[in-house]
Design a protein around this nucleic acid. Sequence first.
RNA 1: GUAGAUAUAGCUCAGCUGGUUAGAGCGUCGGAUUGUGAUUCCGAAGGUCGUGGGUUCGAGCCCCAUUAUUUACCCCA
Length: 481
Amino acid sequence: MSIQKPSIPKGTRDFGPAVVARRNYIFGIIRRTFEKFGYAPLETPTLENLSVLTGKYGDEGDQLLFKVLNSGDFLKDVTADDLQNDDGRATRRVLPKLAEKGLRYDLTVPFARYVVMNRGTLVFPFKRYQIQPVWRADRPQRGRYREFYQCDADVVGTDSLLCEAEIVLMMCEVLDTLNKEAKSEDQKLKYTIKINHRDALRGIFFAAAENRSKESDFFVVLDKLDKIGTEGVKQELKERGFSNNGFQWLTYLLRTDDGNRKMTSEERMIYVNAMFKEIMSDPNAEPVGSKGIKQLQEVFNILRGFDFKQFQNLEFDPTLARGLSYYTGCIFEIKINNVNMGSVSGGGRYDNLTGAFGLPGVSGVGFSFGVDRLYDCLEELNLFPEGAAATTRCLIANFDAAAMTAMLPVLRDLRAAGIASELYPEPAKLAKQFKYADGKGIAYVLLQGPEELALNTFKLKDLRTGQEQTLTLPEVVATLG
RNA sequence: GUAGAUAUAGCUCAGCUGGUUAGAGCGUCGGAUUGUGAUUCCGAAGGUCGUGGGUUCGAGCCCCAUUAUUUACCCCA
């Protein structure tokens, strides 16, 4: 057998001990926040039946699904006719016969499936959080992986806007907690929570687009406003077959200042709402758009009731669209302004996700943190706490076989006191043992050689300061504990 | 799916208009009177220059192909 260079699939990563420790630090903050807001944990299988996944994420999404080949003779149901590709549909025809399972693409759809399957036993409104990896057969690039973790919190069974407001609170709490480690303002995550409403978007759509069949196309282009500008948006809309009529309204609807200064989010809501009333070209624009604005204003009101202090981090953005087609109400996204990275979190309300599984009329709302992107942001800002990588706190040096035996009860006592400890597993030069401790980031080395043994004491060295102390065992425990 | 960039030691990268035996830093290992890391000093190991072909007296360097990685677009956490 020839030697092969080992490799891992593109877009996947190994996580070494230091990285896992820092990822766990992020997971911990998110988990504690979710639990504090009353969400309970849920886990679902890595594999879902493809019938559950397909059709939920749009055509693009279907293409990005990882399909799992059936076990055994996976060709047994494929006929020669199936493979005839004159119509270009052979793949579509054959696929369901080759693969009936796929890797989960997000956590929201499996959650919806779970809710439908367990509707009889769940207590509604049902609040769950879920922290698991998802897979997308995307092309990897900066901040984009084929395997990454999502941290979802969703509630189904209520359409109360309290949930939307609490999503904003949870987003702030997680990011503010991460920012507590910052030693300077520059290290902090400068974030903007963008919020919009699908109906506000549709109001704009009715106002500015004549072609009614391409709603999602319109949103995709509109979402790019901050990248390509108002004129760019108009240009691209034209390229995608939208007519010029109505584009004039875009200029008004997308204004961000009142002529003198930038509007606040709430001023902008009032302004956009007033515009909806004025646009008479399509009477649908006003009722639909105003309904969305009204809900957004209510979310802001609830937040004010909470004594929410961070409205400068919460921005009403009428162009925010988000790709996932199942959103129907409020939509959210978090952008980190001082790191070049796609959104680290997103979410929204979906009125009929469970409908696809035969349970209509259940409204849900939720959001998700992308831990891997958050990690990359923290890394770039150097925002991880120092201790996050350490595992062992104290290494006991190993002088020789006899001393090793004598150190076993010491090791046991340290661990019993809750101190993460290890004994170097073989007698070796002290230099080597110290090097090991240093390389692993261990804070203390405990020594008992012949000299200390004679006095029944220990020498404890702090590797960060280089200082040594001669102590009795209870004193060692007290120092490390 | 579209477009670009890169590929040289375990890692990060130099390597001039093509010219003898391929370079550095970090890391690893060994040593500086056998009980001390990170810091200092000395030394050593480690590369068929991604792969295959071509041009040339001569290719790490130029050309073609191929694979891998990566960035941007699309879309997204």
